[in-house]
């Protein structure tokens, strides 16, 4: 089967998924959230005020028309206006995505390459003392709660030594850099432990395979065996891991953003939840679903590139 037909087919699968997800979001909001007019107008609102607000928000229309709005928004990204700030939600999301991504994306990429490099290094030295030391360190890194990283990081790097900013954000390159270094470092430190351990296991799974022995018997260097044969075979689980993490990069890190005062999407969600800003919460839920399905598609396409055994069926 042609790769383009496969991509097209796989893209069409997105439609039923999004219909299902948006329907679920729609139903949950209606069941759980109840009538938002009480929330917005308070207890003492008159019936006519409530009627007027319902009409204004479009809540008097039949349910399928309202659902259609939600479904449509997953394609058009037109989420309407926030109840709290009255701003266009898409603009708010765009505005919030920048701080989030400038924090998470570089940290994620650095962390990913660092942990792949370290895992290759320890696989090369498997069973030797350096391997055990690294495994010990990763366990130690994992054993600290991430809150401890934030508190110690802010105390030492920010307060004691005054090296980095610990609160706030400035838009535009390169002004944002001082604000994201410390939270970025903390992100890397938190992800390094589990990632190195996971990638090391992947590499060691491959390193004892028969084809690796064959490659050695051809006269390859151990390094070439690792970088060519082992790494390419370990790619499938690595891709899965990476692609499942990417959607969360857009979300930002709730904890880091709130501790470092970064106005990212994490803060946006938190604020929306506090304000009962349903359209914004709904928009974020839809967006996450869309991003997630999109990167799943990318993942499936990458599989076919990396592993010839994946059938385009």
């Amino acid at each position: 089967m042609n790769i383009w037909i496969y991509i097209l087919r796989r893209t069409l699968y997105i439609i039923p998924i999004l219909v299902g997800v948006t329907f679920l979001i729609f139903v949950l909001f209606h069941l759980v959230a109840g009538d938002p007019t009480y929330l917005l107008l308070g207890k003492h609102a008159s019936v006519s005020q409530m009627e007027a607000l319902r009409t204004e928000l479009g809540l008097d229309r039949p349910w399928f028309v309202q659902y259609w709005d939600v479904l449509k928004s997953s394609f058009t990204f037109d989420f309407g206006r926030s109840w709290a700030s009255k701003q266009n939600i898409l603009d708010m999301v765009k505005q919030g995505a920048i701080p989030s991504l400038t924090l998470t994306l570089p940290a994620f990429i650095i962390g990913l390459f660092l942990s792949i490099a370290i895992s290759l290094f320890v696989s090369f030295h498997r069973g030797k003392p350096i391997d055990r030391v690294v495994v010990f360190i990763t366990v130690a890194l994992m054993s600290f709660p991430s809150l401890a990283y934030i508190l110690f990081g802010q105390y030492f790097f920010g307060y004691k030594w005054g090296l980095f900013e610990i609160s706030g954000y400035e838009f535009g390159f390169p002004y944002f850099i001082p604000y994201v270094i410390l939270p970025g470092m903390i992100w890397v430190a938190v992800s390094l432990g589990p990632d190195v351990r996971f990638f090391r296991t992947l590499m060691l799974d491959e390193i004892y395979q028969d084809y690796v022995r064959t490659a050695r018997s051809k006269g390859m260097t151990e390094r070439a065996v690792l970088f060519k044969h082992v790494l390419k075979n370990a790619m499938i689980p690595i891709i899965t891991h990476v692609m499942n993490q990417i959607p969360f990069l857009f979300l930002g890190s709730l904890l880091l953003e709130s501790f470092f005062g970064i106005p990212g999407l994490g803060s946006l969600i938190l604020e929306a939840l506090n304000n009962n800003d349903f359209p914004t919460i709904k928009a974020m839920a839809v967006l996450i679903a869309v991003i997630y399905t999109f990167f799943n598609l990318v993942m499936d396409i990458l599989y076919t590139v990396v592993d010839p055994r994946v059938r385009l069926g």
Binding site: D210, Y211, R213, T214, A215, K232, N233, V306, D307, P308
Partner: peptide
């Protein structure tokens, strides 16, 4: 080797 099924690298 004994195992021709696994002695070749599947991705090349």
């Amino acid at each position: 080797f004994q195992e021709p099924m696994t002695s070749l690298n599947p991705v090349f």
